[in-house]
Design a protein around this nucleic acid. Sequence first.
DNA 1: ACTGTGTTA
DNA 2: TCAATAACACAGT
Length: 817
Amino acid sequence: MDDMKKAANSSCNDGVLLRMGLNDNKAGMQGLDKEKINKIIMDATKGSRFYENELKKDQQVNQRIEKMMQLKEKVTTQQLLKAQLQSTSNYHARRFGVRAAMPGFIAKRLCPHLTIVPLNFEKYGKVSKEVREILAEYDPNFMPMGLDEAYLNITEHLEERLNWPEDRRRFFFNTESTTRIDKDGMNMSAKFNEGEVSSSPVLFEDNTSLMDDGFEQRGLSVENSVVFGTSAEEVVKEIRFRIEQKTQLTASAGIAPNTMLAKMCSDRNKPNGQYRISPERQAVLDFLKDLPIRKVPGIGKVTEKMLKALGIVTCSELYQQRALLSLLFSEVSWRNFLDISLGLGSTHLEKDGERKSMSTERTFSEINTAEDQYNLCRELCRDLAQDLQKEGLKGKTVTLKLKNVNFEVKTRASTVLSSVSTEEEIFAVAKDLLGTEIDSVAPHPLRIRLMGVRVSGFLTEEEKKYQQRSITSFLKSGKEIGFLRLQPEKSNQEYFTKNSEASHRGSFFDQKRAARQLNSENISPNESRGKQLFHDDKSSANFVEERKKVTDLQNSNAREIFTCPVCFEEQSSNNLEELNRHIDGCLSGMHVKDTVEISKNDSSRENTPNFLPQFKNEHVDEREKNNTDQLAGTDQSANVSDSSTNNSTEKFGQIIPDKSPRERQPSNLSDIVRNMCMKQCLFPKRISQDNEDHFDKTEQIEGTSSSHFFDTREDTALVCPVCNSEQKTTNLVSFNRHVDVCLNKGLIQELTEKEDFPTKTYNMENSNRVFSGCLSKGQQCANPSQGTKRSGLTASQSVSKKAKSSNSKHTIEMFFK
DNA sequence: ACTGTGTTA
DNA sequence: TCAATAACACAGT
């Protein structure tokens, strides 16, 4: 405990150095003299405004940590125990809760044997077509990430490759600049075999004995060539070899069963090497065991520091402290932490979605006159407008970013009702924001060193369509006059700019000028008329957009046939909304059914929100067992709800009360565990018997009693994402159950053996009271599915996409994403 | 829902 | 190394 306090109150110097990124946990710094560099930078920056600001920021972080530690002090043993149970079961319920919705989808999400290869190019290369061409040979769907990284799934390539003749795996050293390449070649071979887990001894041997006339004729002798094997490692070596031969760029790579691990792998042998984590559970855990959390993508210096204050440095500690983390951090965060500690990551390479914002910003030496600032602002708007138009984007929100000479950053945003894209349109908004800021420091000048403009809130593709349709139909229909009468002029003004300059500053002339600017490229020889027309035009578009949205939707698309993921009936519909309505209907129908089936107990419901998810799960599982026919529907409804928005989860929680009070309030720990195990059918026999044999038995029993709905259609083997072992069953119900078991394994063990509990000082003798206690009203409710907000101690993470998708409504997009 | 700040890559 | 760009989480309103 004292250690943690010390860590939290770490000195300012430490903090600043941390902030400045001088922390050698990340690869690449190992060889450098950290102390020396720190000193140099300290000397260079001490006393500067920059340095002062870094200090300030660091103190803010320290405050956050302090707050967190205070919170931690208040955490009771009871809460921790409760959290221990919940964190794991809620976690798995949510993460794998989508189960039955779509067999194929799930199977793909959980099981594929992926090999993902991020390539980190050493030099900042124009990773031009050439490279890309090479990568596409191994995975046509490879995903470039930024300029210097790409993920590819070479699973299929590996299969094909097994049958390839050797010549197809033979590559030549570049012969054009012989001397250099020879040298490179030697370096390459040396590096290839250096420090790699299972480098192939065959590589660079055996080649000399083969002579081939064809090669000789082309001036390519086998001495100048390499044959690569058929393993994943060999493939990646081949890729790196080819890239280097073609582009002179070296790359490091990682091979692992998911993106997160692959990324960390590629970090391992950074300069010019590769590393592989085999997809066995133990290999993953070994890799993670002593891995500093800082290495995990998404965990930056702040998160690192905060976790360090809790005594967490490695990924395994992240797992050990999961109960505490679930109390101190937001749900998104701690689930991400748990994901990390279990080595779970995304196994499919999703195309990154549509962009959400576009911005441009510039740093400069101090600018403090309003005139310069406005000019600069206009310039930024011009640049941004160009970029926007290149991608054909229009956005509703304009954000101005300012950094003053003290390095303090401010952003000011304004959302307008009609989306903007031209220089004038953007500037019209941005200049107001800028004006407000200038005014706010008046009579002092606004002294800035950075200005940026961002546009966000883009129309979605569909919205674009409607708008275009609306505008064109509007123009054609010639109903302007009728519409004009509906909208008084004043509201038109406000329609365009919410922060209308007229409202707080800006004179009449300002308005005039702004209007002129806006109109300059539009139309209208007559100024006043032009202004009117301009605004009216915008407003009309909006009006039409809103009014016609529904009808446009209905008329827009040809009828298509979808299969409802809930009732599995084919739905012929001409738009998504209709379909979604159907699905919602299906889902709520299920809810109603559930409600009727389960007796409601209001008094206990209020007292037991914390256990809902667990019992929800039980509830489902029990019926999976007892009534396979009905099960298909109810299970799906439950699980779809699981993955849906907080709203619907909440609703779900309220509608579905749990079981009888006796079960809800077990009198002691072992009762809880026993109940849990029996209800969830996780451990048919004695829970302390926690071995692999168990899984098989479980599967055999359940495999026979499960509905066909849950059978995977494909012949793909299911691989448990937790233990990474291939499962014999093709039945998703039993497969999911296996995953449950895996996830709960450690927990159950801990609870039964009463050891390995995060902080050993917690008194387990309290356990008898823990659960009744935590059901009382006064207790802090930490149930995530109830939407309880925690204080902002959270760290963000790149899983957000995951989080988002599991938060999306039960719309069809979710299933066909 | 929108805005503003902070973290991360 | 540093600036620029983008995404996202969270909190406050």
